[in-house]
């Protein structure tokens, strides 16, 4: 592997009037003594899709999982995660409440071993919603948002595990949306899907952008360039470049990013 200067960074300064939903400041992640993420400072504008790209092991998933504190108990996270003037990386924040505002969808679809309906209704009930009509309405709304409603509306009692991989993943998105979050974190959501399901998923995400702020980790550069408004490139635990997607893919600033995008990496 070529030796790159990891301090060579280029982070886009967003215009002052951009509404920032979540922002990390000097985020550090340690697995035991292994320093897995160095000084990650990024801002995520409202109603946009930001793609996190980089080779495997570059720390992009680690970074994503730190935002809603899914790394609690696995890794030590230092630095600030600012959300509505509140540092989420603090003992005072109730992680359970917080995770309802920052939803997450994982690499492999992970619906509960319950019916399609229950997959969404059960967490809603746990949230304290008791009204049956309201639950039913939310289930329908979120399934529609995730573009799954037409395929499953006649058989909501069916086990979620009997759905195809692509459907399962959209169910997981619907489940996350039902909690009416601000932010949706997606960790390589298409990596376990076939190309058709994957394309369908991308369409869904494009639609969702209107109402949610989306941060998506992907290993597919095509996907990142098609889908996202902003892109952050990670390398060996460092954020190397953050910019508008178009800029990064046509005219990257740093040499590492350029090599990665043009496939001259390593």
């Amino acid at each position: 592997m070529k030796n790159y200067d990891l301090t060579e960074q280029s982070i886009l300064k967003l215009p002052a009037d951009t509404e920032i939903v979540v922002e990390t400041k000097d985020l550090q992640v340690f697995y035991g003594t292994n320093h897995a993420m160095h000084d990650a400072s990024l801002q995520f504008p409202r109603y946009s899709i930001t793609a996190l790209i980089g080779a495997s092991g570059s720390g992009k998933s680690t970074y994503l999982r730190s935002i809603n504190r899914m790394n609690d108990g696995i890794a030590r996270v230092e630095g600030q995660i600012m959300y509505r003037d509140l540092n989420l990386n603090s003992k005072d924040v109730d992680v359970y409440q917080m995770r309802r505002r920052i939803g997450m969808v994982f690499q492999r679809p992970n619906p509960f071993a319950k019916s399609i309906y229950e997959n969404i209704a059960f967490p809603l009930r746990e949230m304290g919603i008791k009204n049956k009509q309201e639950i039913r309405a939310t289930v329908e709304k979120s399934l529609k948002q995730a573009a799954l409603w037409d395929e499953v509306k006649d058989d909501l009692k069916r086990s979620a595990l009997s759905l195809s991989g692509g459907q399962q993943q959209r169910l997981c998105i619907a489940r996350a949306l039902a909690m009416s979050p601000d932010i949706l974190l997606l960790d390589e959501p298409a990596s376990a899907l076939d190309p058709i399901s994957s394309a369908k998923l991308e369409l869904t995400l494009q639609e969702l952008k209107k109402d949610y702020t989306i941060i998506i980790v992907t290993h597919s550069m095509q996907q990142a360039s098609r889908l996202s408004d902003y892109t952050a490139f990670f390398h060996m635990g460092h954020v190397i470049e953050f910019d508008r997607t178009q800029k990064i893919f046509t005219n990257p600033t740093t040499r590492i990013t350029e090599d990665y995008i043009s496939g001259n990496f390593g």
Partner: peptide, 14 residues
């Protein structure tokens, strides 16, 4: 699988 635990936790379930 841990995936199921992550699903629950990411939805704000205890």
């Amino acid at each position: 699988p841990d995936l199921q635990r992550e699903a629950g936790l990411s939805l704000g379930l205890s």
